[in-house]
Design a binder for these strands. Structure first.
Lengths: 318, 318
DNA sequence: GTGGCTTATACTTATCCTGAGCATAATCGA
DNA sequence: TCGATTATGCTCAGGATAAGTATAAGCCAC
């Protein structure tokens, strides 16, 4: 890729950096969202982008297979982070992390790897609102956030902080917005309420429940969850996480697991069916309590038929 | 950022890469979307990520100001590309491009720079459907695409190609989807119908109108346009491109310029007003034909009041 | 100043989408 | 057979949307 300015070329290897490829690999099993972790569940699969890699994605696939034994299916790029907090340190070169979201199923678990499937709500307990928040966590969160807001210098800043906390966490009778995963993580980091913040130099305080990860990995995971929660609403990506055949309730449970909240059953079915995303297989689910459900499969045809995109503009049809 | 696996660290500088920062800097002037270009309008502002840069964004800001004299305001990351087509060449290290979308206004044009504002439809003539497509372009496009489809080996492949072309370009009575900017560009590239493809080794054919750029820059621009077209529908980002005060028609013209298609006037107004995105300034537009319009300003308060996000799931309120 | 041109803005109508609840069906086990 | 459990069909009100009609308020030529 030719750099546009002549200056770019002149820079040469003096400005070399190292690039890490990081994967948020997601599966949903029995209504619980899982992510692939390594290093005692404290890190995401990752490795450096090397000469030999033909592209970023092939490099990522190589690392994930090597570390987890799990082949990558659906993959999309998430975000590129640079290391932060090492500003003046000109000795060690910059390191950047290029992160990806991968969707798959939790079968074919590779043997002989130190990789595991971990529930993603272990890392973000406050993101699971399906059964409402545990009263204890809700209380802790609210009081810690309020303390953080109060600790600001001026009353103006105090109000700003509290407003931000209230919006992202749905306090003061505001609606909970499940997509703000990253914003909530960033706020907790700034407020020094999670271990990573303390590790990076924040004043040591009592910390909120939720398992930490190395480096930026929990931030990357938050980015992945946010992306996925947004995307299931306008692209049929849930099906990447489903088995070939499934009941509508299983599908609903998967969506709820990802979104972290419950949906209205009948309306969910209407939505799915009117969009013609699925078709009956003819078979019936066995081994269930209650009335047996029809089995469905994803209609792969829809991907070819229409390019699904949401219009929110009053486009004129002329 | 600690690499997760021990392997990552061991790699060291042998796997060093160079990272370029590339900016798609957008403004809208008199109903025409513009982008900042350098190098005789054949490239986007860009430069390498260096030691001295404290973060990716500060590096980008430094380069853009140095090359264009224009300060960056609103910025968001677009995508990270690796150079492609240089697989085996282990001599020159990998080079990756981290691209950003920036939104501003076309005032304060820096003097003494080789930078210009260029209309973005010069680079993508087929993306402007506000006045319908010029009949000539429509014809050329359709026939070239059909020829490309026909040139496939098997009839199965031929049908696949045509279906893809028809979906992305809204042929065969399908709806035009203005968000598929990147998909259309990629298809034209694969079909060898644009200069960049020929440059990169495609068989030389007659090429479609539309000005090329160096390297991947037109692909990056396509990514930026697509992102912006999608985003104006669910986030109030248009206002970054508007002057402090504006009439509703000016706002509408800006949206239409970005989307490349017309919207229904009355419904557009209702949409804007019901969302309480703007408020009257009390002043009236001067210097106009027809009945003078009220001037409005963006209500910055909305950003604080609500976290605007689209729900497309039948969430239950219990 | 009047008629015609242009744009702004208010109002109407039919249709569709959405959230929510009610009712019934099918299966199992006590 | 009853009760528990899940599946599935149906209704209904309210709101959002697409599209069109009508009126208001300026300017300009004459």
């Amino acid at each position: 890729m030719a750099g546009a300015s002549t200056k770019s070329r002149a820079a040469g290897s003096a400005n070399a950096v190292t690039a890490d490829l990081v994967a948020v690999l997601v599966a949903v099993t029995e209504g619980e969202p899982k992510i692939m972790t390594i290093a005692n569940d404290g890190a995401l699969p990752s490795g450096p982008f090397e000469f030999a890699h033909r592209s970023l994605q092939t490099g990522l696939r190589a690392w994930v297979e090597a570390q987890t034994g799990h082949p990558l299916g659906y993959v999309e790029q998430l975000y590129t982070f640079a290391d932060r907090g090492r500003a003046g340190d000109a000795k060690s070169p910059h390191s950047i992390s290029i992160s990806y979201l991968g969707l798959t199923r939790e079968d074919k678990v590779g043997q002989g790897f130190e990789a595991h499937w971990s529930g993603w709500y272990e890392y973000f307990p406050w993101e699971d609102r399906r059964a409402g928040l545990p009263a204890s966590l809700a209380k802790t969160l609210a009081s810690r956030l309020r303390a953080w807001a109060k600790s600001a210098e001026t009353t103006g800043l105090q109000r700003q902080r509290w407003q931000r906390a209230a919006i992202t966490f749905g306090l003061d009778d505001r609606e909970w917005n499940e997509e703000l995963v990253l914003q909530r993580y960033e706020l907790l980091y700034e407020a020094g309420l999670i271990p990573e913040a303390v590790r990076d130099g924040a004043a040591a305080t009592t910390v909120i429940p939720g398992r930490p990860m190395t480096g930026d990995h929990r931030r990357i995971l938050a980015t992945g969850i946010a992306r996925l929660r947004a995307k299931i609403k306008y692209r049929p990506v849930v099906f990447e996480l489903m088995p070939a055949e499934f009941t509508l309730l299983q599908l609903q449970r998967s969506v709820e697991a990802l979104a972290g909240r419950l949906v209205h059953k009948q309306n969910f079915r209407r939505l799915i069916e009117q969009q013609q995303l699925v078709e009956e297989t003819g078979a019936i689910a066995a081994d269930t309590v209650g009335r047996p459900a029809k089995l469905f499969r994803f209609r792969h045809g829809v991907l070819a038929e229409r390019a699904i995109a949401g219009t929110k503009l009053p486009l004129s049809r002329t």
